[in-house]
Design a protein around this nucleic acid. Structure first.
Lengths: 251, 251
DNA sequence: CTTCGCAAAGTTGTCTGACAACTTTCAGAT
DNA sequence: ATCTGAAAGTTGTCAGACAACTTTGCGAAG
């Protein structure tokens, strides 16, 4: 146990190297598009092994600062301090966030998710369908047991995004899902089971899955749209503001 | 040089492992605070060497998803992804870019922007139309003077997103626009003017504006879609992979 | 002289094995 | 029952090797 105080972080070597390289980039000592020194040179310069250099560069790749090309080298990729997107500014607990704010975020999610469902219907692999079906099955179990399935709910939506075969869409969906990790609890709470909210949500999920499995892009978009509108209502939001039942034709 | 088909995208192993672990975390298959499998176990599970596992975990540490404690293990961060979303994309306008990467990011942009255009058509205020029109006018001037108008191009797209009256959609559009600030230069370069790319882009812009001004949501979506598909082609991307001419009906 | 082809060198990607530093566990001593 | 300490387990680092890919440059063919 023990709440380790965690006094100081002895900066692991790879972190230190990554910071130094990041600094060189932000100082333009390594201009954009420039090739980084080879791993061998960096080893000598920092006095560490190649594994450390590679872990550091791996971090920079995750940050988007550099890209690598096998056989060629590593290159500076992006301006520093450029690429991060945040929502729901402020560390406020969910209760204090005004519903307008949540509604707006939900609409952005809706934009991406309906488009993702559409494309997922065109590109899903058998493995994608399996993954979705497993999440559905777990939610069915939770439905029977009247237990919680927020994680499986999220997993289902991420699986749809993954079926686009576009890792950025998947990551964005996972990111958006996290924003609602708390707000989605009511559906799967005891009250949610009793009132039928959970069962209704599951039926909507099934429609989305069927459309994607059939490869019917239009139906997939419509089903996702319908689900999100209903989900918004279950959260007490007002989807009419961004609802496009007017557009897509609600069913 | 030519066209290496590159039909398959063998994602580097460390990237693939990192994505899988990220997925497990986002699916809550690895809950907050939980300990990841040991590196040795992960090696066996993925069938790769320890170096690959370590590079993948290094990426996750950079993302803040996991923390490690020497001698103990790696743990999912207690506060997962509090809310920053990152994209990565390659550097230069010249050759030597991973076009797959840009293409995937562009598709995400396409998802949001077509939806934004649709909603903008329903909600735009006179002030929004004025803002869009001013950006259009500035691009017209640039067209006559054969000068640069990348900033106005971006401003036009952000104005559309702003017309949704949803600040998050506007901020996301601005964020995505930044990702392409360099890659959009070719359209407005001297060569872009000479070859007619700039004029064509402007014509597409006008169609989007007209549809939004008329309040025709379907036409706005279609015009935005058409513009983005053409813009992708101007960037040398292959929109067929994510293109949904099949869906929206190309014109 | 130019152009094409191809081998060689250089670089990143991955594997293997080893050891150091640190943490956790548990059996034995107190 | 508590404390001690050795052993096992895990991450951090190092070293060397080979595979996959890219770039370079030399030599031969045109």
């Amino acid at each position: 146990m023990s709440a380790t105080p965690i006094p100081e972080r002895p900066p692991h070597l790879s972190a230190a190297v990554a910071r130094q390289l990041e600094r060189w980039i932000s100082e333009q000592r390594l201009p954009r598009g420039a090739q980084l020194p080879t791993e061998k040179l960096l080893c000598e310069k920092f006095g560490v092994s190649r594994a450390v250099i590679r872990e550091a560069i791996s971090r920079l790749k995750a940050d988007g600062c550099v890209t690598t090309r096998q056989g060629s080298g590593a290159y500076v990729a992006a301006r520093p301090g450029q690429g991060s997107f945040r929502l729901l500014h402020g560390p406020s607990p969910s209760a204090t966030i005004p519903t307008d704010e949540i509604s707006d975020v939900f609409e952005l999610r809706c934009l991406v998710e309906t488009g993702a469902a559409e494309r997922a219907a065109l590109r899903r692999t058998p493995a994608d369908l399996t993954r979705m079906h497993e999440a559905l099955a777990r939610m069915d179990e939770a439905l029977a047991a009247e237990s919680d399935a927020v994680g499986d709910d999220d997993a289902f939506h991420v699986a749809i995004a993954a079926a686009t075969q576009n890792p950025h869409i998947e990551r964005f969906q996972a990111f958006m899902g996290r924003q609602f990790s708390d707000s989605r609890a009511p559906t799967w709470s005891g009250e949610g089971h009793r009132s039928g909210r959970a069962r209704q949500a599951q039926a909507e999920h099934a429609r989305i899955f069927d459309a994607i499995a059939c490869g019917d892009a239009d139906a997939a978009r419509a089903a996702a749209q319908a689900h999100l509108v209903c989900a918004a209502r279950r959260l007490g939001l007002d989807p009419s503001r961004w609802g496009n039942e007017q557009l897509e034709g609600a069913e």
